[in-house]
Design a protein around this nucleic acid. Structure first.
Lengths: 138, 138
DNA sequence: TTATGTGCAAAACATTTGCAGGAGT
DNA sequence: ACTCCTGCAAATGTTTTGCACATAA
């Protein structure tokens, strides 16, 4: 059995992580690609996907499997919950207490070995509430 | 402003709904397609997608935006939570109390108009726990 | 009769992967 | 040196869409 070689510290990885740390917007892989490309114009989208996936696996970042068509990534790794705007798809953190106890409750209600949970709220963000008002006037 | 014409009751729609009511497995669009095709061999995948989407919009069924690569559909429309197996992707209902109050807590912690929430537990299902054991023996 | 719905096929997205050359250790 | 990693491009998988014909109301 072979010892696992540590992840190499490549320029691409550093910059992807740096860019992700700069924002609180839970960007999609493609948004990260756009951010990183400003500093590394020749980076490939595949590299971004591969590294985001790898960093999520090793726990450096969080992969958010929220609603919508794309996965999102988050450099804040402490457990926390999210709100997603049904109108524009924006995802924000929501600062309410994490319910550690709920996992055990769930474990007793099913035959799964429970590893964790995530709460996703859905709603309309303040920007979109505004636009809705404007739209209904017209 | 034109009155909205009600949804037509087509054979395709009836059968899609009937098949969805038969199972508790939260099938993907493609799985619904396979189920329906046994009774309606000439139905198109596009029709299945269009109708599942439409039924979800009108509240006849639930579209589950859970983790994994595909959306899933559920004929049980009462609010309830889910567990997803990280190994095989299976999704099951989890019968614990729905927390109505949490929406208000969330509303106070952000600037969204909160509409609802969903809790997704992640874990390993009993089938996959078995396979893991077998695998680790080898 | 006529607006809606359907089948089919192509397009549009999101993500993954194979490979030859490049770079970290 | 020797892996592991990257860029590129092609492949894959999922969902949406355009259009001519069919059908429920």
């Amino acid at each position: 059995m072979q010892e696992h070689t540590p992840m190499r510290l490549t320029t691409q990885r550093q910059i992807i992580l740096e860019e992700l740390l700069k924002v609180t917007s839970h960007p999609t892989a493609n948004e990260v690609y756009d951010m990183v490309r400003k500093r590394l114009p020749r980076i490939g989208l595949g590299t971004v996907y591969r590294n985001l996936e790898l960093m999520a696996e090793t726990g450096m970042i969080l992969k958010l499997e929220v609603g919508g068509t794309q996965k999102r990534f988050d450099a804040t790794i402490q457990p926390h919950y999210h709100v997603r705007c049904m109108e524009c798809g924006k995802v924000d953190d929501i600062d309410i207490a994490v319910q550690q106890d709920i996992n055990e409750t769930a474990a007793q209600a099913c035959h799964y070995q429970i590893i964790g949970h995530h709460i996703e709220f859905t709603g309309i963000c303040s920007n979109c509430t505004q636009s809705d008002k404007t739209a209904s006037i017209n």
